[in-house]
Design a binder for these strands. Structure first.
Ligand code: MN
Ligand code: MN
Ligand code: MN
Ligand code: MN
Lengths: 235, 235
DNA sequence: CTATAAAGTTAGGTAGACCTAACAAAATAT
DNA sequence: ATATTTTGTTAGGTCTACCTAACTTTATAG
């Protein structure tokens, strides 16, 4: 079914394995975090290993393979980056992941803490047509259930200003745009706090000692730890 | 995520690989064909190899593994059958396959010759909740786009009488219930002939020489080869 | 009832994706 | 500037799922 000529250059036809897709997705995630946090360019073997829950030696082996396929820029002992090709393909996986999450949430009544796990599987389904139809079926959503931007069919992400709640000015109204932690624990806790995408928040006080925040949520007062406030993006 | 205790009996937790799922699905398909055609019970290594497009030695190896996992009854040089467990799990895969096909066709405007290929991938997504939600979303369909019965959540197939068009009585009206060839070539040809699920057909004449049929389709006359008529199920 | 053909099995090999243990390079601390 | 820690790499091994080539068992045909 999936014809691919491997007799010529192997990267002539971009047929990544499920595992390869996960590696470049992790790489995109980690490198973009580096950039937004204004750290160095590129990711290390160990960071990738932690993210993918495998051992560094396994990552090392894979990086060589990804390098052969022209998906990453890899040199011994140096930080790794995605090539243009690698980034394009990683964005496609992200697009599929987020569209599936949106589908599960909007059409199948999945809670926002349940979608990620299933989308991890669905993101690897190979069918251009399928994902375009899903996109259409959902009426071309721009953001997934966690507020993360969905790349369009060209790989372009919608741009939007957002700030971590932990870094926001006092006594000003903000709306929750996204969360940057997709673990069940965090999302369940948000539900308990009744904080969701679209919730209005106002920072009343920042505690200098531990960075925690006193928040006014439509009249209700609550305290958020810095860790939580770091994972809430507002604008 | 998918916790599974392999320290006890390995079949304590039924976590089949994608490939194992394909083997038991093929086995169910081939053995049920045997039964409807009143041939012997069980399938041979070579038949399975043809069906799965691998070599007999590969099948042989896998059969031993499936036997260990109590999914098949395998003895050297004998025909293979599914165990009760194997059949149950195979039916779950079939259920997923047919529900996905129905989803693609009914909700995403896929043609009936396009659904199979994508469903081959989707059938392996592991999530009880997902498939139950899809079932509900489709309002619990009983038949897929090719007229094949969809097992319910208990693995029970809806029962229905049907006959191959090639074996039907002359001058009697029938309705197309299903097709038993899911290749694009066959399904495209059916579209050309404007024969779909629900189409009314009347056999006017059987040509003894080659088994072909003269058909009256709502006033239009057409001739079908035996091969085609074999793959149209009516009732 | 043998001879040949078909079906099934075994042996030995490959590639992907993982592992542990040992080792080398780079970064950091004293 | 050297010692230590951290990070990254290599070597060698496992498991799944495939392969080819050689072999054995069963079926079929004369
Ligand atoms: Mn996610
Ligand atoms: Mn994934
Ligand atoms: Mn199908
Ligand atoms: Mn399949």
């Amino acid at each position: 079914m999936f014809f691919c000529n491997r007799t010529f250059h192997s990267y002539f036809c971009h047929m990544l394995t499920l595992v390869e897709e996960n590696y470049i997705k992790a790489l995109l995630y980690l490198t973009s975090k580096d950039r937004t946090m204004k750290l160095q360019e590129g990711v290390g073997t160990n960071d990738l290993a932690v993210n993918l829950q495998v051992k560094p030696s396994t990552v090392n082996e894979m990086l060589k393979r990804l390098n052969e396929k022209d998906l990453v820029n890899y040199e011994k002992y140096k930080k790794v980056t995605l090539t243009e090709l690698g980034e394009t393909l990683a964005l496609k996986v992200i697009r599929k992941h987020r569209l599936w999450e949106t589908f599960l949430h909007d059409k199948l009544e999945f809670d926002w803490d349940e979608v990620h796990e299933v989308a991890e599987q669905l993101e690897h389904i190979r069918s251009e047509k399928l994902i375009e139809k899903i996109d259409k079926f959902l009426d071309y959503p721009k953001y997934d259930p966690h507020g993360d931007p969905i790349p369009d069919s060209q790989g372009v992400l919608p741009k939007r200003e957002s700030t971590r709640l932990s870094q926001v000015e006092k006594n000003q109204n903000y709306v929750v745009l996204a969360v940057s932690d997709t673990t069940k624990e965090f999302l369940k806790y948000m539900e308990d706090l009744e904080i969701a995408i679209g919730t209005e928040l106002l920072v009343m006080e920042k505690i200098a000692y531990d960075g925690s925040l006193k928040i006014n949520k439509k009249g209700t007062l609550l305290t958020l730890s810095q860790k939580v406030a770091d994972n809430i993006l507002v604008g």
